[in-house]
């Protein structure tokens, strides 16, 4: 499963980082850094939470969960 960021929508709020810090981080200038695009099985729950929590609905998930 892959994370897709709509870069036009993301405004660097960082809700995603507070829920899944290994995956998302907001840089000092407010831009989002994606530490990984692929979501592993043990990250799935928190990444799903991050997707739901993004106030600009900038995040979505694509593809199947890796075995």
């Amino acid at each position: 499963m892959r994370i897709v960021v709509d870069w036009d929508k993301c405004t660097g709020m960082g809700m995603c980082e507070s829920l899944a810090p290994d995956v998302f981080e907001v840089d000092d200038d407010g831009s989002l850094i994606l530490h990984t695009e692929e979501v592993s099985q043990d990250q799935e729950a928190e990444v799903r939470e991050a997707v739901a929590a993004c106030p600009t609905e900038a995040l979505s998930l694509e593809g199947p969960i890796d075995a």
Binding site: M13, S18, V26
Partner: peptide, 14 residues
């Protein structure tokens, strides 16, 4: 105007 900061503390608070 320090967008990288509060979310790091959010985890500590939680």
């Amino acid at each position: 105007d320090m967008p990288a900061e509060v979310m790091k503390y959010r985890r500590l608070i939680g």
